[in-house]
Computed example of a mutant assay.
Amino acid sequence: MLHNTLLFDLDGTLIDQFSAIHKSINHVQKELGIELSSFDQVKAAVGGSIRLTLKRLFDDTDLESTLPLFVEHFESIMMDEVFILPDVETFLAEARARDIQMAVFTNKIGEHARATLEHLNLSQYFETVLGAEDTAYRKPDPRFTEHILNSINADLKDCCLIGDSPFDWETGQAVEMPVYLLATGTHTLDALREATGSDHIYSNFSALSQHYFSDKVCHYGTQ
């Protein structure tokens, strides 16, 4: 039995926008005259929100000075090299064909998330897209989860979350919502297992699809 509603994380789950994030971080570092971070260093620092990423990479630098520099540059290049991750569209189309309600639930700045999904022609699949700055909350705060469920009139017991990080796992655990994790973002399969102990971790959407849409699998009660 499938869930009535699927909530999706965005970066590292549905899309890859790490190139623009890396270039924008480097732009801020150049402006401040400090050493540039490598792509891998930036990717490892992503998670939680851009505010947390900047804090991890800039240490004692004032967030109120680095954030505007990042946002201004990111908005000028955010569609450069962004792409949909493999098998995402196939999964979304299958879920829509089964009348499953879908929404995006991300710590990415909401305006950026909505613009990116529109650019990639993925907005058609989602009833709403909720991100950072849209409310005072972020994942894994239960109030953020409550807000999106109320906005789409969804019942918690009929929902699950699909994401790529321990933040997504913690979000589900906080409200006892099932979570399926994908090793398509900042964490490997082993890293996700070590961080969460979950039995529901998949290498990609193809692997998840084979499990999730199987008629032999009951998903309710999955944690």
Rank of each mutant, 00 (worst) to 15 (best):
Q41N: 10
H219M: 03
P86H: 13
G131H: 14
L85I: 13
H200S: 01
R114A: 11
H27N: 15
I50L: 14
T135L: 13
Y125A: 01
D164H: 05
R114S: 08
N121P: 01
C159K: 04
A20W: 04
S198D: 03
S151V: 12
G131S: 11
S151N: 12
T222C: 10
Y180W: 13
K55A: 11
F18Y: 09
M78I: 01
L2W: 11
E72N: 11
G110S: 07
M102V: 12
F144A: 11
S24Y: 04
E127R: 06
H73N: 12
E133T: 12
K30Y: 14
L122P: 00
I162W: 02
I34Y: 05
L122T: 02
I201H: 03
Y212S: 00
D80C: 08
Q29I: 05
R51P: 03
P166I: 12
L120Q: 04
R51K: 15
S214E: 06
E81N: 14
V104A: 03
G172V: 05
H112G: 03
H147F: 15
T188D: 05
G110K: 12
L63N: 06
D199W: 08
D155I: 12
E35M: 06
D16C: 04
H187M: 06
T90R: 08
F213Y: 07
E72D: 13
S37P: 07
N4V: 02
P140E: 09
D87L: 00
H211M: 00
A136R: 12
F105Y: 15
L2H: 03
L161E: 02
L36Y: 07
N150T: 10
T5I: 10
D141M: 09
A20R: 07
S19C: 01
T106A: 06
R114N: 09
T13K: 00
D9T: 01
D141E: 15
K43G: 04
F126Q: 03
T13Q: 02
A97K: 11
D215Y: 00
E35A: 06
M102A: 09
L130Q: 09
L69D: 10
G172E: 09
N4M: 05
G48P: 11
Q41Y: 04
K43T: 10
A103M: 11
A183G: 06
D141I: 08
E127P: 08
E31Q: 15
V46Q: 01
L161I: 13
A115F: 12
G48D: 05
L181D: 04
M177Q: 09
F58L: 15
